[in-house]
């Protein structure tokens, strides 16, 4: 459309300008965040940092690294993801096969969405009360349980959204051949939608490993490497949080390094899920 000095054309140009500005703003904040983490974290990231647990005087800026937090985070998020998977995969599959678009099925989806929206600090407080009632102390197991709770709705809804995109014909063909719904779910949907399901699992893992508020009371924090389910475990987000709060620049360095490692883990998980989806998407029927 040719530009004329009419109100509507000026409005159009103005709207377009504002859109580009907002896009630039959102983009710039992302670049700035990544740049901050990179420029602060890279100088602080040494081999000692990722290969050692904290030693004596660590919090005064002496020897040691944050291996305890790295391992702790991987255990916590890994355990939480596995536990959540145990429930969410059957739930997502049955949402498609048995419940479908029925009233009950949509009620379950609404409940999952509401669960997804519950703040992680509330999960943390809930988990802590529960552990007190059961007589448990802050431990790796407690953290895993709460993270599983946190990840369950994310994983299930992500899987559900993926499974809905499955070609309906495949399902109907399997049903027409006489298989029952459980067989359809396990032998047809699960295989066809595996890339999407893996993406959902990785998404939930990424959320779990980055969450600090829920593990604050339930997993606790320790300088030791995690060895037992009943002992407290350190985690990367909390390592960032606690070490940034100290007045010593050397300790703050470690917070930057921990933030960088956390960011790298999350980015790798996010990118690899994308790659996996593209790679294994080839083996599915379209």
């Amino acid at each position: 459309m040719k530009f004329r000095w009419q109100r509507r054309h000026v409005g159009e140009a103005l709207a377009k300008l504002l859109m580009f500005l907002s896009l630039g703003l959102v983009f710039a904040s992302l670049v700035m965040i990544l740049w901050t983490v990179l420029s602060k974290g890279l100088p602080a990231l040494t081999w000692q940092m990722v290969s050692q647990a904290p030693k004596g005087g660590f919090y005064l800026g002496k020897e040691g690294g944050i291996l305890n937090a790295i391992l702790g985070s991987l255990y916590l998020a890994g355990g939480g993801t596995l536990l959540a998977l145990l429930f969410s995969l059957p739930l997502a599959l049955s949402l498609e096969t048995y419940l479908g678009n029925s009233r009950w099925g949509n009620g379950v989806r609404l409940a999952l969405d509401v669960l997804w929206g519950i703040p992680s600090i509330v999960y943390g407080a809930f988990g802590f009360t529960l552990m007190l009632a059961l007589g448990m102390r802050a431990s790796l197991l407690g953290g895993i349980l709460v993270l599983a709770l946190l990840e369950l709705p994310i994983m299930t809804r992500a899987m559900d959204e993926v499974i809905r995109r499955m070609p309906r014909d495949l399902e109907l063909a399997a049903l027409a051949l006489g298989s029952n719904k459980r067989e359809v779910a396990v032998h047809v949907i699960l295989r066809q939608m595996l890339p999407g399901i893996v993406t959902a699992i990785l998404l939930a893992f990424g959320r779990g490993i980055g969450d600090a508020a829920s593990v604050l009371f339930t997993a606790g924090y320790t300088d030791h490497l995690p060895t037992s389910l009943m002992r407290p475990a350190a985690s990367l987000p909390l390592a960032v949080f606690f070490q940034l709060g100290t007045p010593f620049p050397e300790v703050q360095q470690r917070a930057y390094a921990a933030a960088l490692i956390l960011t790298i883990i999350v980015l790798v998980v996010s990118l690899s899920s994308r790659w996996l989806a593209a790679r294994f998407g080839r083996f599915t029927v379209r």
């Binding site: 998404l203 600090a212 933030a259 960011t263 999350v266 980015l267």
Partner: peptide, 18 residues
Amino acid sequence: DLLAALPSVVYGVWGVLV
């Protein structure tokens, strides 16, 4: 999606530093 995936403490670090 990347922006959504970043953990909240990373935003916090950015907040404190910038």
